[in-house]
Design a protein around this nucleic acid. Structure first.
Lengths: 162, 162
DNA sequence: GGCAGATAGTTGCATATGAAACCATCTTGC
DNA sequence: GCAAGATGGTTTCATATGCAACTATCTGCC
């Protein structure tokens, strides 16, 4: 059996890589705009699709509803996001960027793309395309891990998804 | 300029993927062995290389010394790791797995490799080799992000790249 | 010897995070 | 109409994490 050298272990290497990248991005957004990663994500989706509800934001950002709730609360306090109640459903609020929020959005997008470009500069165009495909495949596969996907899946995985 | 679709943004996709994979692994190790990820990492390196100091463990696991200190304290409390003082340097302690720790190690390694295998089952052998190379390149590149490596892109990287 | 600075490791504090309880509103079956 | 869930969203609490300050030891220079 292969010896488990930690630095050959793909999940570990993925984790280290992600922490470096996310940390670098988080630091910059925190310094320049006072945004946390969850806040940044909320602004990103609201910039793309105004009027989403908190639940819809959560669905698009792979965050849970608590995280979204807190990020939204903080963004509203900073007057970067506004909530307008839904006419039909009193529970739902529609979220949009304020003018100030839009101004921030217009800055964070190029900064994000610039950072991504720097990051991907280590790869050729072809490699970037391959990476894209691998991420897609692996992300799909990762679902299996969360259900009993391997060996003695001892049933305790309460996630009985559709 | 490209619109920032969050699900085309590589750092975001990396983060989502890593969270899924690490979460799945963490859940299993927590359920079966009561191990957190930092504890798991410490045991992994001590199984490979007994007698490391805490500082050396930190260097090999990409954790900071606080994280290592806490993980080690918890592992010692669980009698899975023992510390023996260094003869020459009173500050240093050498860490080894106890018999019980070794028994756990002998179980966590195959479990880890099994999970990795399941995860990578989505890829062909060739793709796995490519992934390995891409992770290496990107991890090296990520260093640049953390030093001021890309101030050029502060908001106006409208132009396309090389 | 003895003091200034480095280094190993720990602890305190402030913040981030997640699970679960919670509140308000909506829907359904009767 | 209304009780019994479902659903959107928030709050509470317990834990995890990161930074900075701290202790203890070591090294080097005078």
């Amino acid at each position: 059996m292969r010896r488990l050298l930690l630095d050959r272990f793909i999940p570990y290497r993925l984790s280290v890589l992600t922490n470096k990248v996310s940390g670098a991005i988080a630091r910059r957004y925190s310094e320049r705009f006072g945004l946390s990663i969850p806040e940044w994500r909320v602004m990103a989706v609201l910039g793309e699709t105004p009027g989403l509800s908190a639940r819809e934001v959560a669905a698009r950002t792979a965050m849970d509803k608590v995280q979204v709730s807190r990020a939204v609360a903080s963004l509203i306090a900073a007057r970067r996001v506004a909530r307008t109640p839904d006419g039909d459903d009193g529970r739902v609020g529609h979220l949009t960027l304020t003018r100030a929020g839009q101004a921030v959005y217009d800055q964070i997008v190029p900064l994000a793309l610039g950072l991504e470009k720097t990051f991907l500069a280590a790869l050729s165009r072809e490699e970037r395309a391959i990476l894209d495909g691998l991420l897609t495949k692996l992300t799909r596969q990762a679902q299996c891990l969360n259900r009993g996907g391997q060996e003695s899946a001892d049933g305790r995985t309460g996630a009985a998804g559709p």
